[in-house]
Design a binder for these strands. Structure first.
Length: 471
DNA sequence: TGAAATGTTGGGGCG
DNA sequence: ACGCCCCAACATTTC
């Protein structure tokens, strides 16, 4: 029998392994192995995963697959499964992540004598090892990377519009799968239920999100993408993270737009950043644990657990930072502009190791992927490739005033700031006694006092990071 | 996709 | 009319 091993590719369309499997066979098996080791205990993604599994099982069963859901280490489970079901051929799609590539190696080494393995295309536009500078070394700057990668991609691929098969509405559920998900994947405490009203996992929804965005939102993307109070970005990221839609499908949409303008290009650039992150992660796999620029290894990070906790909870006293963290808790997602502000605050204002932030985002984001998360954090910290220089420090007050002028975003997530005058919405500690009395606002009762003074924190960060540079 | 400090320019008030 | 000062607006440099 043939086996389609489902990894992070919960889709019917543009799924290389799935296209190949069972072409000649009647009975087809699909297997997803839930490896608990790969998720932190409190990972929000367990919720998305569970929902997308439930839907994907239905879609696969329509195609004649019998879907199995098992728990454990992928390698061990696969070995046993292949034996138990007398599998003759395995089909799966490649994942360009160092640990997954190791797993691939282990699997192919073990099975190669006894069965055939088909390894399909990954969820990247191309193999990261195919893109190199003329001198043979990997790119470390985004712009030249993307310029080169796009040409490479267009030359190597048929990028005419990918015809998407319609995904059926799924009304039924498989009780066995639902029970497994409930008992094995989802935590006992149902804290994740709040996501149900916000997100709709699944391939059908992913395609709808893309199409709606392309129809309605992209025409103002370059302007709106930076305003966190506006629905200006696609919010496709969790769908992409679970492979419900591919970069290739998105690129194909982009490529078939007749009059491309700055909005389209800015949007597709974000797919480029994802490619770049995975490019870096594959060429420099050590960055998962270590600073790409090793001089940062000498940096003395703060060990202030209290401030770290306050950052996580959104109690820093800087409205734009705290609003971002609240949005993250409530929705499992944070606006990109605010990701930059909050992460810069942790690394520069609090001088806490980026790994703390990386780990927290890993648990909290529904759209977490290892490439973007690692590279994003190293970029903000200045220790990554093409990174922000040490002196680039976001001012949380100014950023708020620039990108959340009327405080709509801040007020949405921090209702206790509702009556603060616009002028002071990003620095409520400056409110004068008379106004405070009038609106009934008391700083340490209704909101937090800033845990650090911006000016002092900025100067301390400059000194600390500057010393590092001269070492 | 940074912010703050410092430098330059030019208009207006004023003696 | 002129010189001086102030300061906003913009430009450049620095961190």
């Amino acid at each position: 029998m043939d086996l389609y091993w489902v990894r992070s590719d919960f889709r019917i369309n543009n799924n290389n392994a799935l296209e190949q499997v069972g072409k000649n066979r009647e009975k087809k098996l699909a297997l997803y192995i839930y490896n608990n080791e790969k998720f932190h205990k409190r990972s929000a993604q367990k919720w998305w995963l569970s929902q997308t599994i439930i839907k994907f099982e239905r879609a696969l069963s329509e195609l004649g697959f019998t879907f199995h859901l098992l728990k454990g280490d992928e390698y061990e489970v696969l070995k046993k499964f292949v034996k138990d079901y007398n599998i003759k051929q395995i089909y799966y799609n490649k994942i360009f992540e160092p640990k997954e590539l190791e797993l691939d190696k282990k699997i192919s080494k073990y099975f190669k004598l006894n069965l055939k393995i088909f390894v399909g295309k990954s969820n990247l536009l191309q193999n990261p090892f195919d893109v190199k500078k003329n001198d043979g070394t990997p790119f470390q700057v985004f712009t030249p990377f993307w310029k080169n990668a796009e040409i490479h991609y267009l030359n190597n691929n048929n990028v005419e519009k990918i015809k998407l098969k319609n995904i059926k509405n799924i009304n039924t559920k498989n009780k066995k799968i639902c029970d497994f998900v409930e008992n094995t994947i989802l935590p006992q405490k149902k804290w994740h239920e709040k996501f149900e009203n916000i997100w709709k996992p699944g391939e059908k929804q992913a395609i709808e999100v893309l199409e709606n965005f392309m129809d309605q939102n992209i025409s103002n993307y370059s302007k709106n993408r930076d305003i966190p109070s506006i629905f200006g970005t696609s919010k496709l990221s969790p769908h992409i993270a679970f492979g419900e839609i591919t970069s290739e499908t998105i690129y194909s949409y982009f490529n078939n737009i007749k009059n491309k303008n700055i909005n389209h290009r800015k949007f597709i650039n974000e797919i480029g950043w994802r490619e770049f992150s995975y490019h870096l992660l594959n060429h420099f796999p050590q960055i998962e644990e270590q600073n790409l620029r090793t001089q940062f290894d000498n940096f003395i990070w703060s060990n202030d657990k209290v401030k770290l906790e306050k950052w996580k909870k959104g109690e820093t006293g800087y409205p734009i930072v705290d609003a971002g963290m609240k949005e993250l808790h409530e929705t499992g997602w944070m606006h990109n502009r605010v990701r930059m502000i909050t992460s810069s605050f942790l690394v520069k204002h609090l001088r806490i190791n980026w790994k703390e932030g990386e780990s927290f985002f890993r648990d909290s984001l529904l759209d977490f992927n290892i490439g973007n998360n690692i590279c994003g954090w190293q970029w903000v910290s200045g220790c990554g490739a093409d990174a922000a220089p040490y002196f680039r420090i976001f001012n949380p007050i100014l950023q708020g005033e620039k990108f959340d002028k009327d405080g709509l975003y801040v007020k949405k997530w921090i209702p206790s700031l509702q009556s603060i005058p616009k002028k002071l919405i990003h620095k409520p500690w400056e409110i004068d006694n008379a106004t405070a009395k009038k609106i009934g606002f008391i700083l340490e009762r209704d909101y937090y006092k800033p845990i650090v003074d911006h000016k002092i924190a900025r100067n301390e960060a400059l000194t600390a990071f500057k010393n590092l540079k001269s070492k």
